[in-house]
Design a binder for these strands. Structure first.
Length: 702
RNA sequence: GGCGCGGUAGCUCAGGUGGUUAGAGCGUUGGAUUCAUAACCCAAAGGUCGGGGGUUCAACUCCCCCCCGCGCUACCA
């Protein structure tokens, strides 16, 4: 909430990464709130652009292509089309949904990179990276697999072990091998360009910690503070990869921009493309949601460079560091761009008691929902809106989805509209009756009506979308209450004028519902406007007592919503569990065999059965136990990363298998003399490996 | 382990800068009603505000410690 005068708004929604479908958690995190915000601003008559698009670079795209046995281009085309279609069907009102694979984005990204390069803002650094000699390429983290040092999983990726979730760097992997050739990679020096984030720390402190302490959400502010206080590091802005945007420098063959460098620039290139397309009249990606008049090709600059533009990024909590630290530093460093006014990041939405995850099959993907409920985009929007993870992780359940539909959309909103319309048809042949003398109840209802748009607007502007949605449904409640109090059906025989006034007031409420409900339920709003015979109205008209003109003919009343039966909900829950089970079975093949070894090589390993004599926790370590083991030869100290699986008490006295001639190594200041062997279960659980019955300590294993 | 965000009625969640009987929706129970998709409307029951200290005339709200959930980060031969 800066004090600058706001002339226009640039609203962005996180660019979905197109390595797969996106689920309803993504909708709740960024897309639904951003759409409500953008629609609201348009209704207010504000100058706004709403920007989104597909994020199509990075190592995970080629990786997914490999998995699906196809090309990177095919992957991005497939998922871009899928996600684009889902967003459209869910009513996402982007002015443009662009793609980072488009030439104009490559151009914009390279321009910004060169801008920083020419200012001398990058540092160049050469480091040793894994290189596949056979394929003749540097290996991105994801293309290197090896044994996870944490859990022993033999197929951990170079950036992360999917089994235990540890964040890794490729150098940590044991027995690394290239996924391209299945050969061990070699280390080879390579040069990269780094953005020294630490140079911007004073500015970040001033900009975020001081000037946005009040208006940024606690979760966002806290996360930024955490990053800044931990000490910022130089961050590589380039990668060795053949999929992405070429580094626009002469000595940079085989190097591309880091996906997190180019992705947020996608917002800018999309805006640029929007004005390009509207200017030329040749709309390819642009879907302008309002009149853009007398548009110049360079008008995009106003939305990114003028100080009187308010820039808002809607994202999920996983993107905070990029949108609050790295991208703003990039923008600031150019000296030409504005930085975000606010980044209202949401937390995560859980599903039926567990984290949502596409890869684990525990998710409701957008396209899955739309296949099963093609005529109910608004019901999903509403169910998500009433339970957005605004301050903490929230929970989506199918039962709650059903309840929100049946008890609120059907019973309160739909029912109110239906009551007003049916009564009007019954007593006034479907024409809006005249408003005559107002009773106290009428005046009270109209006064309440007047307040709602103000309250709802305040909530939306403060990014409190749940509250805004609750206020909206409360307006329908007010309508029901008004009908219950005035009981027009009882007066029909005695005082038709009075009935007319009551129904006029009721229909005015319905008309306002169609206006203020538009950001939340755009499809229903359209239906309701058609039913009432009103055209598109501005937010300012909402709350007025004369939105509907007397005499207007209402159309036959279609029901706005229908009940969802228990069987439908039960089927969805079953489908969810079935999907998870299928994915589990599919994604858990036994690890492939390692490279062949000779008997001599194997014989070098001195593996024995030992007995654990002592075990204690290691101070300041979550995963380590310090063990004293009787190896039969001696008693020695072994550090073992099993503290999350065993308590010290339960391992004391146990026989274990130990590699005794492993070179000693200091861990947490203690010398570890050997390694305890573990069996790792499919779920990552560790088990001690011991003989079926006790043997003498020191017995060899061969 | 360090840092950040959370831990409020059966459920999902609100509760700026501390101040009368702690709120909403759903669910439950009772009542009223029939225009409406057995919907609506009214009312009630239901909480030692994670636990323990402290500051204060007064704390859900401020400070300290502990426990639990989530996230980032480190150790992991």
């Amino acid at each position: 909430m800066s004090e600058k005068s706001v002339k226009r708004y640039t609203v962005t929604a996180a660019l979905p990464y197109v390595n797969g479908p996106k689920h309803i958690g993504h909708l709740a995190g960024a897309y639904i709130p951003s759409d409500v915000y953008a629609r609201y601003l348009r209704l207010m008559g504000k100058d706004v652009v709403f920007i989104c698009g597909s994020d199509e670079h990075g190592t995970a795209i080629p990786n997914q292509a490999l998995k699906e046995g196809t090309t990177s281009k095919a992957i991005i085309d497939k998922y871009d089309a899928l996600i684009r279609d889902c967003f459209h069907k869910l009513g996402m009102s982007f002015d443009i949904y662009h793609r980072t694979s488009e030439p104009i984005h490559h151009q914009t990204s390279q321009e910004i990179f060169l801008n920083l390069y020419n200012k001398g803002l990058f540092t160049e650094e050469t480091s040793e990276q894994y290189f596949d000699e056979e394929a003749n390429v540097f290996l991105a983290d994801r293309y290197i697999v090896g044994t996870c040092p944490t859990c022993g999983h033999t197929n951990a990726y170079g950036d992360q072990c999917e089994k235990c979730g540890s964040t890794l760097s490729p150098r940590e992997l044991i027995n690394p091998r290239s996924t391209l050739s299945d050969k061990p990679p070699i280390l080879k020096p390579t040069k990269h360009w780094y953005l020294p984030l630490e140079n911007y720390e004073p500015w970040l402190r001033e900009w975020i910690l001081k000037s946005h302490q009040q208006d940024w959400k606690p979760n966002v502010y806290g996360q930024c503070k955490s990053w800044i206080e931990e000490g910022l590091q130089p961050r590589a802005m380039t990668r060795d990869l053949d999929w992405g945007i070429k580094v626009p420098l002469p000595d940079a063959d085989g190097k591309v921009l880091y996906v997190w460098f180019d992705a947020p620039i996608g917002y800018i290139s999309a805006t640029r493309a929007l004005f390009d397309e509207v200017h030329s009249g040749n709309l390819k990606f642009a879907t302008p949601q309002r009149k853009f008049e007398n548009v110049g090709k360079e008008d995009w600059k106003k939305y990114w460079q003028d100080e009187d533009t308010r820039l808002i990024h809607f994202i999920g909590k996983d993107n905070i560091v990029f949108h609050c630290i790295i991208f703003p530093v990039m923008l600031k460093a150019t000296g030409e761009f504005i930085v975000p006014d606010n980044v209202p990041a949401n937390e995560f939405m859980n599903l039926e008691d567990d984290k949502m995850s596409t890869s684990r099959g525990w998710s409701i993907e957008m396209h899955e929902y739309l296949e099963d409920f093609p005529d109910k985009p608004d019901v999903l929007r509403y169910a998500l809106l009433t339970n957005l993870p605004e301050a903490k992780d929230s929970e989506f359940t199918w039962k709650d989805f059903q309840a929100k539909n049946n008890n609120e959309l059907v019973a309160i909103f739909g029912n109110f509209v239906n009551r007003a319309v049916v009564l009007t048809q019954k007593y006034f042949e479907g024409r809006v009756p005249v408003q005559k003398d107002l009773s106290d109840l009428d005046k009270k209802a109209l006064a309440d009506l007047k307040d709602f748009p103000v309250k709802i607007a305040a909530s939306i502007e403060a990014f409190r979308f749940r509250e805004a949605t609750a206020n909206f449904i409360d307006l329908a409640r007010t309508g029901n209450k008004y009908l219950a109090e005035t009981e027009p059906w009882k007066l029909a025989k005695t005082d038709l004028d009075r009935v007319g006034t009551i129904l006029n007031v009721s229909l005015q409420i319905a008309a306002s519902l169609s206006i203020v409900g538009e950001p939340f339920l755009p499809f229903t709003s359209r239906k309701l406007k058609d039913l009432l015979g009103v055209s598109d109205l501005s937010w300012q008209q909402a709350g007025n007592a004369d939105v509907l003109k007397a005499g207007t003919l209402l159309t036959e009343a279609p029901l706005l919503f229908e009940k969802i039966e228990d069987a439908v909900i039960e089927a969805q829950v079953k489908k969810l569990f079935d999907k998870k089970r299928t994915m589990e079975l599919e994604s858990q093949p036994a690890n492939p065999a390692k490279a062949e070894v000779t008997f001599d090589e194997f014989s070098k390993m001195d593996i024995r059965i030992g007995k654990i004599l002592k075990a204690e926790r290691v101070e300041k370590s979550k995963k380590l136990l310090k063990l004293e083991v009787d190896t039969g030869i001696d008693k020695r100290t072994v550090m073992s990363g099993i503290a999350e699986h065993f308590s010290p008490e339960e391992v004391i006295g146990k026989q274990v298998t130990i590699l005794v001639n492993l070179a000693p190594r200091k861990i947490m200041g203690v010398e570890s003399q050997g390694m305890i062997l573990m069996a790792e279960d499919k779920d990552g659980a560790l088990k001690l490996v011991a003989p079926a019955s006790d043997v003498t300590a020191g017995a060899g294993v061969r």
